[in-house]
Design a protein around this nucleic acid. Structure first.
Length: 798
RNA sequence: GCCGGUGUGGCGGAAUCGGCAGACGCCCGAGACUUAAAAUCUCGUGGGAUUAUAUCCCGUACCGGUUCGACCCCGGUCACCGGCACCA
């Protein structure tokens, strides 16, 4: 075998590194292209074939861009703080630093074996001091500008990890790391005010080119709703109960109010409430439920009617009772609602159970269930007769405003970002607690605040951070007043380091700034970011928030970090199930590289299906790709013939197809086109030498090692990886004659070959001469002829 | 429950704008080469009827519609996948 991958893959990887083929620098004479992939979490298991797919897409794209003359930045690094490493370290009694270093070494060698064209001079590791120094620096900027606050709150807590989780990390009531049930616990929590950016994050989606489902998921996560705030006066005390509603049009249908069990007004007026003991009992009952139980749909509505407190409808003046119930959450809106059972399903269910009045205010309901549709207003005084939608909504808001009892307003589902973790392996939060000054920022010039070296870092039973045990770390002096003080001992969540890493790549060795202005000006924004769908509502939201904040304080030059975002589909196991250790269906990329070489692995993963969709692994299809590359290599012994108009046309069509397919991430059809081309060459038994060279350049982004080797054997002394991408001549991709389908009443009867520019009459003459329609048309009269140039000729006859 | 997405041969998947369904690959079958096997090469391969070739019928989850013509558009149904989930 002339082309044995074992002989040349390593060779070319070394050559690329020696000659800095993928190393880039600012070059204002060239157009830049910044391609970004989600840097890996270096787990002990090593790389997964899914990593190869995730990076493979932009690997092909950036290689092509480089050949097209762009100055390409395609960096890689490691997102290495986090619980899995820490848990593994505890289990094996190894320091997380050692675990991390080992895992990074493993990932690095694996990625190099696959031949990815990363700029290895820019590698970053979020756990290095010179990196997390700047993570802390950004945190302090957020603190300085009032985006950090501390609160005692009921939070998502994972009993197994002994750690607080953000809303994003406990989706579905499960811990994202260990999948245990998350419980609610009252804890001291550091929050980042991401909600202040809710509107900007939403608006920003209009200026970027993300896949539509990514935009939609982010919009849903941010969850903007429009409605009104209204104040219901309490009859017995001088107090107003403020509520939020999206349906101010239905305000005349309010028959009761509901407050969250934890609502502060309850405690404020405890002595006015006749049945406070029932309230306390109900609260205890609610506290016992897990988040999951509490949010289960279709469960029975529960609640307690408050005795001794009554609300007054600001529009109608009517008095209505007040309940507490856990179907109203303290964390959304104002923690209290006006209930309109005639037009809200939950309120309806509650009213039925507790025997409260149901007053319809919109025509159209049947009284059997809540009517949530639109219609004409009834039973609503000044709103009667108009449509509920826009008219009644704005009329109701107008009157509320006139009375000073409410106003239009918006609400977001997104919550503030719970930012502290009671674990060791993370960035220390650079805050000092001083008895006199409160929470004080560590001065910028004292950064990095180093993570102390520890031998034992199991978190405390009570959920306190392991750092609390290190007295030399905890005890310090207040930077403001110099009095003895204590350091914050919690660390940042895993998502901190990844919220700005794409900026550090631009200038990874800068000791004075997180990134130079010059580098920001040249490289930002990221032109194309590819990654997994699982990061759409976390990493992407977080990093967009940080970036937008940095933009607002003048530290970066673009409001949005990522101009374009795509996502690859999963690689499933051969059984069609998600790959997992427990199912035993995981494919190790190393084995494929050992057996067939990196190029085969790369080509197969790009060929296996639509890049954006999930598809199952198939070992025999891998062999098909091996066969393809063998056939490519085999062409090296087939050149020598002259180029013909036909061969030239085939090649130009191929250039066109591969070029546009790569741009559209249709890697599978690009490879299919190359396979077809090769089949044509084998049919002909020969290929022209120059045409083979063009083919090799087209193959280079997919199978770069074989391409370099063949390029070299074709007598070239340059790198094919740096060779200009071939251009096609549109006129050579168009055929002179085309085969068109001939149909009778839309059914295929045969095909004929006609000149590509043939008009209807010419085409019809050819069809008549061919006789394909003779049988179908026998004894019939032609009613209509439909001719689509280059496609079909359909005849309608009776 | 709500919001998305998907549904095409034995399998992975193709199919610009509504215009030859099944490209390309896998699997399988036949042949060539070989003492033989592997590898390689060549050919065949949606299902059915029939006289192998000609010809005809059926076929893109299901039911119906629009159209000369529908995998594609419209209405309805089912299944699977993903996201959100008492958000007032």
């Amino acid at each position: 075998m002339k082309y044995d991958y074992k002989q040349y893959e390593k060779h070319w990887q070394n050559k690329w590194e020696e000659d800095k083929v993928f190393v880039c620098d600012i070059d204002k004479s060239k157009k830049k292209f910044y391609g970004l992939v989600e840097f890996p979490y270096p787990s002990g298991a090593g790389m997964h074939v899914g990593h190869i797919k995730a990076y493979g897409g932009l690997e092909v794209i950036t290689r092509k861009k480089r050949m097209e003359g762009y100055n390409v930045l395609f960096p890689i690094g490691f997102d290495a703080f986090g619980l899995p490493t820490e848990n593994y370290a505890i289990k094996t009694n190894t320091h997380p630093r050692t675990v991390t270093d080992n895992n990074i070494a493993k990932f690095t060698s694996q990625m190099k074996r696959v031949g990815f064209g990363f700029d290895w001079t820019r590698v970053i590791d979020t756990t290095e001091e010179d990196y997390y120094k700047w993570t802390q620096w950004i945190f302090l900027k957020l603190f300085e500008h009032g985006y950090v606050f501390r609160d005692k709150a009921s939070v998502n807590y994972c009993p197994s990890c002994r750690c607080v989780l953000s809303n994003e990390d406990s989706q579905g009531g499960k811990c994202d790391i260990c999948h245990s049930d998350v419980v609610q616990k009252s804890k001291d929590v550091w929050y980042l005010r991401i909600t202040k950016y809710a509107d900007k994050l939403l608006q920003g989606l209009k200026d970027v080119d993300y896949l539509p489902n990514i935009v939609l998921q982010q919009e849903n996560w941010i969850g903007k709703s429009e409605g009104a705030f209204a104040s219901f006066a309490l009859k017995e005390v001088d107090e107003k109960l403020r509520i939020y509603t999206t349906r101010p049009d239905t305000m005349f249908g309010v028959t009761f109010m509901v407050m969250a069990p934890e609502h502060p007004l309850i405690d404020k007026y405890a002595e006015k409430i006749g049945n406070m003991s029932d309230v306390i009992a109900y609260r205890e009952e609610c506290a016992k439920k897990t988040e999951f139980e509490r949010t289960q749909l279709n469960k029975d509505k529960t609640g307690v009617k408050l005795q001794g407190l009554t609300a007054i409808n600001p529009l109608s003046g009517k008095e209505v009772p007040i309940f507490i119930s856990d179907y109203v959450m303290m964390g959304y809106g104002t923690g209290a609602i006006m209930a309109v059972p005639a037009h809200d399903e939950r309120d309806f269910e509650f009213a039925k159970k507790f025997g409260v009045d149901i007053i319809p205010v919109i025509k159209g309901g049947d009284g059997e269930s809540a009517y949530t549709g639109d219609g004409e207003m009834i039973n609503s005084e000044f709103l009667n007769g108009i449509s509920n939608k826009k008219e009644a909504v704005s009329a109701a808001i107008k009157v509320l405003e006139e009375k000073g009892l409410g106003e239009g307003g918006t609400q977001f589902k997104m919550k503030d970002w719970a930012f502290n973790r009671q674990r060791y392996w993370g960035e220390p939060i650079p805050i000092v607690h001083c008895q006199h000054c409160g929470d004080v920022a560590v001065p910028y010039d004292e950064l990095p605040l180093r993570l102390p070296n520890m031998e034992q870092f199991v978190p405390g039973e009570g959920g306190e951070s392991p750092l609390a045990k290190v007295e030399s770390f905890v005890n310090c002096v207040c930077p403001k007043c110099g009095a003895p003080a204590k350091r914050e001992t919690d660390t940042m969540p895993q998502w901190a380091g990844s919220s700005w890493y794409f900026l550090r790549y631009l200038d990874p060795h800068n000791e004075k700034e997180f990134c130079s202005k010059e580098a920001l000006d040249y490289w930002m924004p990221v032109d194309w970011y590819n990654g997994g769908m699982e990061h759409v509502t976390r990493h992407m939201i977080y990093s967009r928030f940080w970036h937008r904040f940095l933009y607002d304080i003048g530290e970066v030059n673009t409001p949005e970090p990522y101009a374009k975002r795509t996502a690859q589909g999963l690689i499933l196991g051969p059984d069609g199930e998600k790959m997992s250790k427990s199912r035993g269906n995981v494919v190790d990329p190393n084995e494929i590289v050992d057996k067939y070489g990196a190029d085969v692995l790369r080509v197969y993963i790009m060929f296996m299906g639509d890049y954006e969709k999930a598809s199952p692994w198939s070992d025999s299809s891998v062999r098909g790709c091996k066969r393809f590359l063998d056939r490519v290599a085999g062409m090296a012994e087939m050149f020598g013939c002259a180029s013909t108009a036909e061969s030239e046309s085939a090649l130009h069509k191929l250039i066109k197809k591969v070029t546009s397919d790569i741009d559209n991430m249709k890697f599978n059809t690009a490879i299919a086109a190359m396979m077809s081309y090769i089949n044509g060459v084998y049919d002909a038994g020969a290929i022209n030498r120059d045409e083979l060279k063009v083919f090799v350049t087209l193959l280079a982004p997919f199978a770069p090692h074989l391409a370099e080797e063949m390029w070299h054997d074709l007598g070239e002394s340059t790198y094919v990886s740096l060779t200009p991408w071939p251009k096609y001549d549109e006129s050579k991709t168009v055929d002179n004659t085309v085969e068109i389908a001939v149909q009778f009443l839309g059914k295929l009867k045969g095909t004929v070959v006609v000149p590509a520019d043939a008009d209807e009459n010419t085409a019809w003459e050819i069809i008549e001469k061919s006789g394909v329609l003779d049988q179908a048309l026998e004894g019939k009269t032609i009613v209509k002829k439909i001719y689509v140039k280059g496609r079909i000729f359909n005849v309608v006859a009776k």
